[in-house]
């Protein structure tokens, strides 16, 4: 009973209580719907204007997923290079570190200047924002085999190839996945920030337009969809992780 309370009832009751309070207390408090619409109001807007939302969601979905894949793949490859070559790491890690200190909001306009207004610049912003945490985690992951594990492979006269595929890479996966989980949310943020700065399509564009036009139900609808997108990506990563790290 206690475990049912903790695993099902409590997690449902918490959010539900807030949604109910939002639904019924906000109007009582006299907050007008153009500042904060009720949950049913937002749901209604999503239903009524679904073609508009769907059209924009897809743009953001493509940008976020492509950015996620490209950014993380690049980070993994660079981590492998850094781990195998100390000179390259010493030469270029500071450069990467420097680029990481530039705020995305400052970097995004430059990327849009270079790549124009299509999907590409948004994908790049999403990729850039995923890149650094995965790079750092992956480097640590690839270096995380214990000395006993390395000695085990040495006694078996393992080749560098074996060392990579049978020890370092599998060893790195738990850390890689913990950064991929975080990257699901940052990839969506990157896509939306890219859209803010130069786009007429996507959830980011919708958010900007809705704000300027005081269409708060549309604004909140776009917000709900963007967090829904992050959650969906997160759940996909968790499912893949469960499959890959069955042994954990």
């Amino acid at each position: 009973m206690n475990s049912l309370l903790r695993s099902v009832i409590a997690p449902v009751f918490g959010p539900l209580s807030i949604i109910l309070a939002w639904q019924y207390l906000v109007p009582i408090a006299g907050i007008p719907p153009y500042i904060l619409p009720t949950p049913t109001g937002i749901a209604g807007a999503l239903a009524n204007q679904w073609p508009l939302f769907a059209d924009n969601v897809w743009t953001t979905v493509i940008e976020a997923i492509a950015g996620f894949l490209i950014g993380n793949l690049a980070a993994v490859l660079m981590a492998v290079v850094f781990v195998y070559s100390a000179p390259i790491r010493a030469a270029y890690f500071p450069v990467v570190l420097f680029f990481n200190t530039i705020p995305v909001l400052a970097l995004a306009p430059i990327i849009i200047l270079i790549f124009g207004l299509g999907l590409t610049p948004k994908i790049i912003v999403a990729a850039v924002i995923c890149f650094f945490p995965t790079l750092v985690n992956m480097i640590r992951g690839l270096d995380s085999a214990s000395s006993n594990e390395r000695e085990l492979l040495h006694i078996l006269s393992a080749t560098p190839w074996d060392n990579f595929w049978r020890l370092r890479l599998p060893r790195s996966l738990p850390m890689l996945f913990s950064s991929l989980r975080i990257a699901t949310a940052t990839a969506v943020i990157g896509a939306i920030v890219g859209e803010w700065i130069g786009s007429d399509k996507g959830l980011g564009a919708l958010i900007i337009q809705a704000t300027y036009n005081y269409q708060s139900d549309r604004l909140y609808g776009a917000i709900v969809l963007s967090s829904g997108l992050s959650i969906a990506l997160f759940l996909i990563v968790v499912a893949v992780e469960k499959l890959v790290l069955r042994h954990e």
Partner: peptide, 26 residues
């Protein structure tokens, strides 16, 4: 053959795959 103080089995491999590690590496 070496047996370490801590068993040093690779956690992502089954018992079988751990024992077969020498073959796969070779």
């Amino acid at each position: 053959g070496f047996v370490f103080q801590e068993s040093t089995l690779l956690p992502w491999r089954t018992v079988e795959a751990n024992i077969e590690l020498p073959v796969q590496v070779g």
